[in-house]
């Protein structure tokens, strides 16, 4: 390297918790390399305490987020998609680095990711209609069942598909009114970090989506056992039956709703269906007499 060449300003990416970008409370970070093993950046190495802070932030955000009108949540998610469009180059670069894609492939992956987000955004004010019910009980009662968000959901994002997979697991959780703590792919965190920057500059309230980077073993067990977490998506543990089982066991202590890890990472290009939304919905049934 020539002595006159410009020295890079190397970035250390931070966590995204409660709408803020804190460093890890532990002060630790780790090196993120690109797909060819070349240094890209440092990312925060989230600790157990960071996971607990994220739960607090997600819990604090839950009332406001789930209390918004479905139309409003839909608008906010759609706005996130708009901001993603604005940051195309940054996402394409992050995808090239983390997944080793060509610019064309990265562009396509981004397109699909944005489309996926738009698709989910539209579900906000339809899921109730599709999964709710008026129930014709045999008596003078009005009776209706509607879905409600489960609460705070910990999401282990897919390891391979760092943007499309990420969007495909986060959007269905939050669009219905849940708040999320997302554990980004440790090897491929950059699209998630970029996504957090999108969230921070969109209309998404702080705490709805919290993104932690770093080793899963630091954070996942804490979240799986945390008594103020209501749901657990283990998709990121695809193929790791043993870890997945242990986490599901830990989750049983407060009967979290668990989406089990699949045997292999799903093909994210397929129609997602409703499962990722309905797993983290509760059906509430309300009765009232009909009389004069």
């Amino acid at each position: 390297m020539s002595p006159t060449a410009r020295v890079d300003v190397r970035k250390t990416y931070k966590l995204y918790v409660g709408g803020q970008f804190p460093r890890s409370e532990s002060g630790h970070s780790y090196v993120v390399d690109d797909a060819r093993g070349k240094f890209v950046a440092n990312a925060a190495l989230a600790s157990r305490k960071d996971a607990r802070d994220a739960v607090q932030a997600a819990r604090a955000a839950f009332g406001g987020w789930s209390g918004k009108t479905a139309y409003n949540r839909s608008q906010i998610l759609y706005r996130v998609a708009e901001v993603m469009e604005d940051r195309r180059p940054q996402f394409v670069e992050a995808l090239r680095q983390s997944e080793g894609l060509t610019p064309t492939q990265a562009g396509k992956a981004l397109d699909t990711s944005i489309d996926r987000l738009v698709w989910y955004a539209g579900w906000a004010d339809k899921i109730t209609q599709v999964t709710g019910n008026a129930n014709p009980v045999a008596g003078p009662f009005f009776n209706i069942s509607t879905p409600e968000p489960t609460g705070v959901v910990a999401v282990v994002a897919p390891q391979q598909s760092s943007l499309l997979g990420l969007i495909s697991v986060v959007a269905p959780v939050v669009v219905t009114g849940n708040t999320a703590i997302v554990l980004a792919s440790p090897e491929r965190p950059l699209p998630a970090v970029t996504f957090s920057e999108v969230l921070a500059t969109s209309d998404m309230p702080g705490g709805v989506v919290n993104i932690l980077t770093g080793k899963l073993s630091n954070t996942a067990p804490t979240l799986a056992a945390h008594m103020d977490v209501n749901g657990l998506d283990l998709t990121g543990y695809a193929g790791d039956a043993e870890q997945s089982r242990l986490l599901e066991e830990a989750a049983a202590d407060n009967l979290k709703r668990v989406l089990r890890a699949p045997d292999t990472e799903p093909d994210w290009s397929l129609d997602p269906g409703l499962e990722r939304m309905t797993t983290f919905l509760e059906t509430k049934t309300v009765w009232h007499p009909i009389g004069v």
């Binding site: 019910n133 129930n135 009980v137 045999a138 008596g139 009662f141 009776n143 069942s145 049934t285 009765w287």
Partner: peptide, 10 residues
């Protein structure tokens, strides 16, 4: 009302 049950009601 309270404690009402019906086959159609989840």
């Amino acid at each position: 009302t309270f404690n009402k049950f019906d086959p159609t009601s989840p």
